[in-house]
Structures are given as C-alpha cells and as structure tokens.
C-alpha cells in the first residue's frame, strides 16, 4: 500500500485516496473552438509515462481535496505532491529510498 503525502494533511495510506488520472490536462476554455482531433486527444490520449508521471489524486477519505503528484511509475516512489494550480516541479529523477 502506497504512502501518499496529502499537501493538506500529510502522509496517509493509499486506502484514503482516489486516483484521478494524468495531471495537467486542462479542459479547453472554449471547447467550441477546439478541433475534433484536439478534443479527441483531450478525451482519450494519455502519456503513459515510464518514469516520472504527473498525476491527480484526491484525498477522498480525508480532506476531500484534489492535488497533483509526481510519481515514478517504475519504482512507485513519490517525488513530490503539490496543490492544484501549481506548476509541475522541475524534477527528472525519482528519489532513492
């Protein structure tokens, strides 16, 4: 079970969280102005990164807040968690245990 640091509550076990898919995929401000291709991309295309992956989590059985996390998909190590609206931290490597 992963140990996840909620930016609002601190470290909590994974069972308190809900996974929310890849992060930083913004809904277009005016979807009408978006091409079919761009909208399809928004709906269905995801990075599936091997390595650092920015993803959304929600502390659903805690404070209820959404936040973003940078997780290494190979090791499952979290490099950072950060609040919605903040930029993806400038990191290229996972941390060692």
């Amino acid at each position: 079970m992963l140990l996840i640091t909620c930016p609002f509550c601190g470290q909590r076990p994974e069972i308190e969280f809900a996974y929310g898919g890849e992060a930083h995929i913004a809904r277009a401000a005016d979807p009408r102005a978006t091409s079919d291709e761009a909208w399809t991309e928004y709906l269905y295309v995801r990075g599936n990164a091997r390595g650092l992956h920015a993803e959304r989590w929600r502390h659903i059985r805690g404070c209820g807040r959404f936040f973003n996390a940078l997780r290494d998909t190979v090791t499952d190590h979290f490099v950072a968690t950060y609040k919605m609206g903040e930029a993806r931290p400038d990191r290229t490597e996972g941390k060692q245990p």
Binding site: A18, G20, R27, R58, G64, R65, F66, M84
Partner: peptide, 11 residues
C-alpha cells in the same frame, strides 16, 4: 459528487 468536486476544484 466526485465528478462535481473534480470540476469545482480543478477546472
């Protein structure tokens, strides 16, 4: 409710 919270908090 989760969908509503999602849009409200993130979009």
């Amino acid at each position: 409710l989760a969908t509503m919270e999602d849009y409200l908090q993130t979009e």
